[in-house]
Each structure stands twice: as structure tokens, then as C-alpha cells.
Design a protein around this nucleic acid. Structure first.
Lengths: 135, 135
DNA sequence: AGATAATGATACCATATTAGTATCATTTGT
DNA sequence: ACAAATGATACTAATATGGTATCATTATCT
């Protein structure tokens, strides 16, 4: 089971690279060369990031992408939400009718608690944090 | 994303029901009637639990299943491992070559920390715990 | 103006995982 | 012998994941 899927992972890497290229416009060719991510897949990912307001894009020759906000305002959790939807570890329980009995409620409570923990931990991870050299 | 898949969930419910039916052999018909789980799917699940040593099974007329150990020795984490494999939240990172750079390592460390937490939380959840009436 | 090089939009495809079904063999109590 | 239970195993359906492919649009450069 993956907490972070491939597209989220690629998005994080691409955003970090773009973040490091301050005040420059970065295009897909440069990104694929550096990150070894399949070009058409990366294009789709960047377009999604653009639609969701994390990137500005520029069309035409010499076009490309740049961050739409500062790296300390871009969080991994947000990226995961874009590509993986809202974080819900207890999906299989919610789809069902209300808990038929006590045991399921107790299990659901555990999972809810875990989910809150994951949320808290990931909420604070920004691009800046990921790029810092030392802990 | 589901932390607990459908088969694990069904397995937990079935085991709880069997646990409540102390010193009795419970058959599939009774379980499907009570738990509303598709019969052939439940059969497969019970067979898996038997192979993994959580249930004893009895063939032939008047056959069925009973717990192979006490409910306080059967843990949700074990059940998840049987149906979902070892808990590894960081799969997508491990499949890749060693972290290409610092940022990925920091993200992996976060995910590792989360995974340890999930492990600790689920490790202690037994059938007995789930069946207790009050917290 | 036209060629070129970039992204935008969208539809399609491949693979893996999840969630089951179906069937026949074997065992056991009556 | 028969009926009622599980064992073993192969198959199928639905969904999620990880991509490709193609054409439209826009901007720059000559």
C-alpha cells in the first residue's frame, strides 16, 4: 500500500526542481532530462498543478512553468490531495451503512486516530522543508 | 486510500462473530446470514484464515470453523498482513533506485515515521479489544 | 506572415489490484 | 448411499494506477 502515489511523487520532485530554479521559467524538456520522468506523464502532471494554482504556465516559444507561490507555502499534503483526493484512510468503513456493532466502531475510531496523525505529520511538510540541507 | 481492505474487514467481522460463539462450531451459512458477506468470498477468506492458523476447520456434515487461539491473541495487524501483505506505506520510494537527493530522503523519513506509528497503533488491537463493550 | 517551440485539452490504453464467482474434489455424520 | 459441510483452484468483473497519443492554441523569432 502506498501512502504517496507515483504522480504525487513526480509532482513533488518536479516542484522541488522548479523551486530551486528561482526566477526562471523551466520547461518540460529540462525537467524530463533532470528527473527521468516519462515526458507525456509529466506534462499531464504539470498541467494539473497549473489548474490547481501551484504553478504559473507560459505558452509559446520560451514558455514553461514557475511556482505560483513561495516554496514554504506549498505543502505535500496539498499535492497529495490534488492527485489522490482527500486523505481518507477509513474509506471501506464509510462506504458501509452505519457501524452494525460495537467492534466496528472501535476499529473505526482507531483508524480515525491514525488518519489524524498522518494528517498532522504531512500538513507541515513544505517544499522548503524538503529542500533544506540539514534537518 | 484504504488502510484496511474489504477482505481484511470481512475477516475481522467473521472472526469476531466466531469469537462470540464460544465453544461452538460456526459454519458459513450462519456467518453469511449474520454478516451479509457474499458467501463464496467469505468461504475463500475463511479458508485463508485456516491456512494461516487463525482458525481450525472441520469438514463434513456439522462441520465449520472455530478460533485456533484466544481472542486476545488475534491481532488486527496480523489479519491485515495475511490479506494485504506486510504494511509498507513507503512502497513507491523503495521501488526506485536509492534516493537521488536530499529532499526524497526527508520525505521518506517522514513516511517511515508515519508507518511506525501506524504499526504501533494497530499492533495492540486484538479481537478482545474490539469486542469490549466500553472503552 | 510563417515556422517553430512551447503548453492546453482530451481521449485513449496497459497493467495491477481489489473484489468477487464458479466448479469440482474431499470429508464426515446419519 | 446421501447430504452437508470445507478444500482447492481457476476464472471473471470492476476499479485504480500509470501511463500514451493527438490535436489545438499560443507566443517568439526570423
Amino acid at each position: 500500500m502506498k501512502l504517496i502515489t507515483r504522480d504525487s511523487d513526480y509532482a513533488i520532485r518536479a516542484l522541488c526542481f522548479i523551486a530551486k530554479s528561482k526566477n526562471r521559467i523551466v520547461n518540460v524538456s529540462e525537467l524530463t532530462a533532470q528527473l527521468k520522468i516519462p515526458r507525456p506523464f509529466l506534462r499531464k502532471i504539470l498541467q494539473t498543478l497549473n489548474k490547481n494554482g501551484l504553478l504559473y504556465s507560459y505558452k509559446g516559444k520560451a514558455g514553461g512553468f514557475e511556482l505560483a507561490m513561495r516554496p514554504n507555502k506549498i505543502f505535500v499534503l496539498k499535492i497529495m490531495q490534488i492527485f489522490q483526493g482527500e486523505l481518507k484512510l477509513n474509506e471501506c468503513f464509510l462506504k458501509k451503512a452505519p457501524c452494525p456493532n460495537v467492534k466496528r466502531c472501535k476499529l473505526k475510531k482507531k483508524v480515525d486516530k491514525i488518519q489524524e496523525y498522518v494528517f498532522r505529520e504531512l500538513k507541515v511538510v513544505s517544499l522548503s522543508y524538503l529542500m533544506k540541507k540539514r534537518a
